[in-house]
């Protein structure tokens, strides 16, 4: 029984369609990526999964059951725009939120202390949220989303506004949650995070799911069209090789080439070797970033 199954959900706001026939499944211990430009329908989808709004068509099932008040307890939610009571102590509000999701006060307190220790911010237990730095507020927000040991967690832009050290810290925590069997619905604009964390993704564009599947499979659908090349001396005449679309010289002296088909890569290598020794040569598979821009960008026209 999959923890979260979304089937062909449709949501209209008046005569506008916010989500049009989206369906996906999240397995136990899986992080599912939900990508899309601003206004593509990600937040609406998440709100439907959270039961805040009901889909007009289609269904959402949690461990095979439809939405009900009981499902709330196994959901955890980290909203995109962070929200906490600024003037209330960290301990008070986290315990409150945990209690609302059915935890006992004692349990919540013990759990909170463990999480604070894990994030090495135990000293904030009695501080008001407004006294904390933005990064630490975000950690508190994260704790609020997962303190009640939810089976399904929804993370909307989980790492935005964090410094690299804290991004790594939260990322490893998310991975831990995944390894413990939590199903995570993950939305972000940072494609490198998606590549690192997600097994399957959906790219939404203007309310429609335009690309779906496992990252590996999606990438194989896109041809390898990039070559990275670096040599000690400048290489002449690269743009004249047949099949090369564009050549860009980077600041560090290496080249970034676009090619029409993978076979061109060999001709580039031969051409370069004829002019001197090569430090680096690589035929790159497309990054998710490129795929995203191509998928979403193409349809702009």
């Amino acid at each position: 029984m999959k923890p979260l199954v979304v089937e062909r959900v449709v949501k209209h706001y008046g005569d506008k369609t916010a989500v049009n026939g989206l369906g996906f499944e999240v397995a136990e211990g899986e992080i599912y990526g939900l990508l899309g430009a601003n206004g593509a329908g990600k937040t609406t989808t998440m709100r439907m999964v959270l039961g805040l709004i009901l889909p007009d068509e289609g269904s959402i099932r949690y461990f095979g059951k439809p939405y009900s008040q009981e499902q709330l307890r196994m959901l955890g939610y980290l909203p995109e725009e962070r929200g906490m009571y600024p003037k209330i102590k960290v301990s008070d509000q986290i315990i409150y939120l945990a209690q609302l999701r059915g935890m006992s006060r004692k349990d919540a307190d013990a759990n909170l202390k463990r999480w604070l220790e894990k994030f090495e911010i135990s000293e904030y237990y009695n501080k008001k949220v407004e006294e904390l730095s933005k990064g630490n507020q975000q950690k508190i927000q994260f704790i609020a989303a997962v303190i009640h040991r939810p089976r399904i967690v929804i993370l909307d832009e989980a790492f935005s506004g964090l410094d690299p050290v804290n991004v790594e810290l939260l990322k490893s925590t998310v991975k831990e949650l995944r390894d413990q069997g939590t199903s995570i619905l993950f939305s972000t604009h940072r494609m490198e995070h998606v590549e690192e964390l997600c097994r399957n993704i959906t790219i939404l564009h203007r309310s429609n799911p335009v690309l779906q599947g496992s990252i590996k499979e999606i990438k194989s659908r896109f041809p390898q069209e990039r070559v990275a090349l670096a040599a000690d001396r400048p290489i002449e005449g690269l743009e004249r090789i047949p099949g090369v679309v564009s050549v860009a010289r980077l600041e560090n002296g290496s080249y970034d080439l676009r090619i029409r088909e993978p076979e061109t890569a060999q001709r580039i290598l031969q051409h370069a070797l004829s002019q001197g020794p090569i430090r680096r040569f690589e035929l790159l598979e497309p990054t998710l970033n490129e795929i995203f821009i191509r998928t979403v960008g193409d349809r702009h026209e």
Binding site: L50, G51, L52, L72, L75, Y77, P79, E81, R82, G83, M84, Y85, P86, Q93, L97, L100, R101, A144, A145
Partner: peptide, 14 residues
Amino acid sequence: EKSSRVMEILVTSV
């Protein structure tokens, strides 16, 4: 609660 966006968490809890 609305402007500090705590509401988003509250409505998903109660």
